[in-house]
């Protein structure tokens, strides 16, 4: 078999074209989804159902992970801080790491693995078994009835879960730092309060997790909605949701962090 000398250019062109096609598809999908968000917000019972499956079911993993991350931060932080004789700053270090970075980011990664993958698989299977088509033929828009509530639930769940993660982490660090290591309880909290700013640290952290919620929510419903209607198709769409969501979260985190904390140290 002889291959044309320019075949790699052709392959590159094809790759770019398919990516652009998918981007266009995604743009139209997002536009259509935002068009029905208003209607979907009126159906509270549907959103509550999805909040249950995405949010409530993620509670245990998020709280337990938060607790352990906080405990590890306390042990590691103490090890470093004692060299400089400033162990009472442990609370500050733990709280800032959690509230600014680890809370939003780790929660979003856990959420992508725990909840979003399930959403993709569920929507993909509904499509493969004609459930979405049947709904459409019953004059019920699947975008408003199935897709939008799942997206909205992700946007609501993620900030709440991130808050719980950070709170659990700080309590974990408090257990280790104050009860096991013996740092002064008052110093632990007062140092933290003196250095953690509600607007700069906590509100910005929450804003991050709202953005992550939008990104992870969109990726999961998009991958599910356009999953090929086969077992293989749904499986690879589920994998893609986790991979794409994780990368999107980390990339967005970098961009948001640079935007938020630039200019603060002027």
């Amino acid at each position: 078999m002889s291959r044309a000398p320019l075949s790699w250019i052709e392959a590159l062109g094809a790759a770019v074209t398919t990516r652009l096609d998918r981007l266009g598809l995604a743009a139209r999908f997002v536009a259509a989804l935002f068009g029905v968000l208003g209607i979907a917000l009126l159906r509270a019972s549907l959103i509550i159902r999805e909040l249950y499956f995405s949010g409530v079911r993620s509670l245990s993993i998020v709280i337990v992970s938060g607790l352990f991350v906080g405990m590890v931060l306390a042990v590691q932080g103490y090890e470093v801080l004692q060299r400089y004789g400033s162990t009472e700053s442990l609370g500050v270090i733990v709280a800032l790491s959690l509230v600014r970075e680890l809370g939003p980011v780790v929660t979003a990664l856990l959420f992508a693995g725990r909840a979003s993958s399930a959403v993709t698989a569920e929507i993909g299977l509904m499509r493969a078994t004609d459930q979405l088509a049947a709904m459409d033929m019953m004059a019920v828009d699947p975008l408003a009835r199935v897709i939008a509530p799942r997206f909205i639930a992700a946007v609501i769940s993620l900030p709440l879960l991130a808050g719980l993660f950070s709170a659990a982490g700080i309590i974990g660090a408090w257990i280790i730092g104050v009860h096991l290591i013996g740092i002064d309880d008052g110093a632990f909290w007062s140092q933290m309060q003196a250095s953690v700013d509600v607007r700069i640290d906590i509100v910005n952290g929450m804003f991050k997790s709202v953005v992550f919620g939008v990104a992870v929510g969109l990726i999961s419903v998009f991958e599910g909605f356009f999953a090929p209607p086969t077992a293989e198709g749904v499986a690879s769409a589920t994998t893609r949701t986790v991979v794409t969501s994780s990368l999107a979260v980390l990339l967005l985190d970098f961009v948001l962090t640079v935007m938020m904390f630039r200019g603060l140290n002027g």
Binding site: G163, S166, A167, I170, W189, Q193, D197, I202
Partner: peptide, 8 residues
């Protein structure tokens, strides 16, 4: 909790 106990 974050707003009152952790932050100022």
């Amino acid at each position: 909790f974050l707003a009152l106990k952790v932050g100022n």
